[in-house]
Design a binder for these strands. Sequence first.
RNA 1: GCCGAGGUAGCCAAGGUGGUCACGGCGGGGGUCUGAAAAACCUCAGAUGUCAGUUCGACUCUGACCCUCGGCA
Length: 308
Amino acid sequence: MIVITGQTATGKTNLALKYAQKYNGELINFDSRQVYKHLDIITGKDISSKNQYQLLKKINNFDIGYYQIEINQNQSQTFSIKIWLYDIVKPNQYFSSYEYIKLAQYIIKDIEKRKKTPIFVGGTYFYLKHLLYGFDYKTPPDFKLREKLNKKSVDELQKILLNLNKDVALQMNQSDWQNPRRLIRKIEIFSLKNSSLKSKKEKINIKPKIFIGLKFKNREEAYQKIKQRVEKRINQGAINEAKKLLEMGYKKTDPGLQTIGYKQIIEYLEGKISKEKAIENWITAEIQYTKRQYTFMKKDKNIKWENV
RNA sequence: GCCGAGGUAGCCAAGGUGGUCACGGCGGGGGUCUGAAAAACCUCAGAUGUCAGUUCGACUCUGACCCUCGGCA
């Protein structure tokens, strides 16, 4: 197995495609935004309009399939490579690392059955971490509870958790203790009706043969690349894409639209900021994201870093 | 040139009868990370236009100067 990860806009997919040619591979996306249908231009899916999604199988609400993309090596040679795990769910559907891993494991088996090499490409280290190193999945989300808890203040959530499980509450770090999402998840886990569920932990410890992380050599480089990329996406019709999604009935609060690019463009479409400001904010958000990505990823000592 | 308003960190911006020299937000640096992660959250560092004067003490008062923005010329 090969894994290509790293900061956004560093050319992960291109590198992955090279490996795909060399090792007879197929790509598996692990980008948490590209799993959504219709989010194409802004999330930077490497497909064109002539690519058709090939549906392999429906598992629950998930459309598992691939895009077949062609690469012209030179005039005479063309490679055809599959990319899996794009377009799995609608922008308003719930999706999580749990679902991701189930699907990824299924695809790995499928690829290996055909004697090909799975090549994971993406920037969502949260998903990758769980895929490679395992995860103790024991409590599914309780959306009713979340909805209720989302209305509470951090203060109230802290009190609820203290009553539920004092030890866990006191062990939380400073950041998580102030973080409503983390508090809600903990409450979810320790609330009575869920506590009896059995652990589904699977022992996983996958060691990729090649595990590369791409990062920018400095901030200036990141700024230039990201600026170019955002401008390109604007020219490709990013604004229309966002508008179209709203016209289709998706809301800005849907999980799929909680995405860099959409958030800023929607503010523009709502008349809150100018187009120029939206673009500027988009670029800034993207740079901030690259920083968070590296902060998280650099703790993984198995990644071999390459500067771009 | 005259009249008015104003100059507080990279940007936006609050403040006070002169007394721990100053509220925030953005941006920036550094982090957190066990079913929402392109999310959410934590943390740190930055400032009173210039020069004089009044005063025990001025970012706050006075004067000059330099800029900026309106209006009149």
